[in-house]
């Protein structure tokens, strides 16, 4: 067998994998199993949202990738570099904004950024740091001690620190925790700008709205397992339900025989009829329903359709506890 066959070149899609996680597990010293057999490929330039309830293992997962926590089993590479064997190259590519506001209270904003850039092995670059601070509306506060800043400003400082060495991969652990609406939207804009500049972004959140707004792909973590990773739109299409709600002119006692066999539900007051249909199928069945309603002489005064949100999908997945 030729060596080319024994060690085949990576497929094109593999070359686009910026972080690869294989068979990853973590059991803490006390015996708590935080992660179990995680396999995940993060694609270059994407925004991946890791969703999951508190304690699901999201933070442990990104802490291992970033080098803060040792894995018990498994392998992780970042930009093709093993995070344990080739930690310098792997960690140089990564920036992390942790969930908690861990800051050096007595340091100035600019000094803490200089520290971060140096720590990651980059030479001082005043112009670059100024640009980062201006982008995050922190330039005016550059000489302020971090302890004097508001919570939102501290969060910006954490982001600035993570960006100080120009990482290609940025991890944002619960970026919206304790952040007001304005800052949340500012942050979303900043994340989009970074992605446009080629940065791969992984964010953990339990705000569905955030994942829905930002992500290209969604990963759902529950009880230490990655129960699915899916393109956001595909996920919503596959698992989302659409419903047609009809408000009737006259209340009905029960669903008439002529409508039997259709996925219909009648409200308790008999005034609302809900028809659930499959978003993926060519034939939704709406035309058939409306024709049959006409035949039965059932009049309605309003109709509207609704789609299940990512939140509904997420709640269903976590309740079921496994992949669909």
């Amino acid at each position: 067998m030729s060596s080319a066959l024994a060690n085949p070149l990576p497929a094109p899609q593999e070359a686009d994998v910026v972080v690869s996680v294989r068979g990853l597990g973590k059991t803490y010293t006390g015996g708590f199993e935080a992660l179990r057999n995680i396999n995940l490929d993060i694609r270059r330039g994407e925004i991946l949202a890791l969703l999951g309830p508190n304690g699901a293992g999201k933070t442990t997962l990104i802490s291992i990738i970033c080098g803060i926590v040792n894995a018990s089993v498994g392998q992780v590479t970042a930009e093709g570099h093993d995070i344990a064997r080739d930690y310098r190259a792997a960690r140089s590519a990564i920036g992390l904004v942790p969930q908690e506001l861990h800051t050096d209270a007595f340091e100035s904003v600019l000094a803490t950024l200089r520290f971060s850039r140096g720590l990651f092995g980059k030479p001082a670059d005043a112009a670059r740091l100024e640009q980062i601070l201006r982008d995050l509306s922190l330039w005016e506060k550059r000489n302020s001690k971090i302890m004097t800043l508001s919570g939102g400003m501290k969060r910006r400082v954490m982001i600035a620190k993570a960006l100080a060495h120009d990482p290609k991969i940025l991890f944002l652990d619960e970026p919206s925790a304790g952040v007001d609406v304005e800052l949340r939207h500012d942050m979303w804009q900043m994340v989009r700008r970074l992605r446009e500049g080629g940065t791969t972004i992984i964010l953990t959140t339990h705000y569905i709205e955030e994942a829905e707004e930002m992500a290209d792909r969604i990963g759902v973590v529950n009880k230490g397992e990655l129960i699915l990773v899916e393109d956001k739109h595909t996920l919503m299409r596959k698992l989302g339900k659409k419903q047609l709600t009809l408000t009737l002119q006259q209340p009905m006692q029960a669903i008439p025989q002529g409508l039997a066999g259709l996925p219909l539900e009648l409200s308790d007051d008999g005034l609302t009829l809900v028809f659930t249909f499959d978003t993926q199928s060519e034939e939704t069945g709406i035309a058939d329903l409306l024709r049959r309603l006409g035949e039965q002489g059932i009049d309605f005064k309003d109709l509207r359709t609704s789609e299940s949100s990512l939140e509904d999908i997420f709640v269903n997945l976590v309740r079921k506890g496994n992949a669909p």
Binding site: C66, I68, H102, T103
Partner: peptide, 14 residues
């Protein structure tokens, strides 16, 4: 104690 050690642990330093 403050938690800022995350940065040191995630940095490319020996």
């Amino acid at each position: 104690w403050t938690g800022t050690i995350y940065e040191l642990l995630s940095a490319p330093v020996s």
